[in-house]
C-alpha cells in the first residue's frame, strides 16, 4: 500500500512539470520537422520525401508501422516517447490523407519498444516499403 501511495505522490509531483514543458504536437512538428518537411508535409522533391497524402501508406505494409518510429528523423528527435507517439498520431491524422480514427494510434509503450531498435539501412528499408505500396495498388 505504501508503494502505491509513493508512486501516486511521485506521479502528482511530476505532472505539473511534464505538462508545463510539453508542447502541442503541432508545435513539436513545427520545431522539429517543419524545417525540412515544410508546413503541410509536402517536403521537397528529390531531397525531402513528401508525407502529404502519403504517410498513412506505411501503415498498410508490413514493417511500415515500425519504420515511422525508427526513421532517424523520428527516433532521434529530441522528444520523449509519449510526445513522439502523440506527434505521429497527429501527423497521420492531419496530413496523410487518412482520418484520425482509421488507424490504431501509437502508444507511448509501443514507441518506446520500437525506438529501442535502431534502423541500420534506412534508404533500403524505405525503398522496400515504397515498392510494396506500388504492388498493393
Amino acid at each position: 500500500m505504501a508503494t502505491v501511495f509513493r508512486t501516486l505522490a511521485l506521479c502528482l509531483l511530476c505532472l505539473p512539470a511534464v505538462s508545463a514543458a510539453a508542447m502541442e504536437p503541432r508545435t513539436n512538428y513545427m520545431i522539429n520537422c517543419q524545417g525540412c518537411h515544410l508546413a503541410d508535409g509536402r517536403g521537397k522533391a528529390g531531397s525531402v520525401p513528401s508525407m502529404k497524402g502519403e504517410l498513412h501508406k506505411f501503415l498498410t505494409v508490413p514493417g511500415g508501422r515500425e519504420f515511422l518510429v525508427q526513421v532517424p528523423g523520428s527516433a532521434n528527435a529530441p522528444l520523449n516517447d509519449a510526445e513522439l507517439a502523440e506527434l505521429l498520431n497527429w501527423m497521420l491524422g492531419s496530413m496523410s490523407g487518412t482520418s484520425s480514427n482509421s488507424f490504431s494510434p501509437y502508444t507511448e509503450a509501443e514507441v518506446k519498444k520500437l525506438r529501442a531498435k535502431v534502423l541500420v539501412d534506412v534508404m533500403k528499408t524505405r525503398e522496400r516499403l515504397v515498392r510494396q505500396f506500388a504492388e498493393n495498388k
Binding site: A22, M23, R26, T27, M30
Partner: peptide
C-alpha cells in the same frame, strides 16, 4: 515568426 510555441496544457 511562424507562431507561438503553445503548450499542450
Amino acid at each position: 515568426v511562424l507562431g507561438v510555441a503553445t503548450d499542450s496544457a
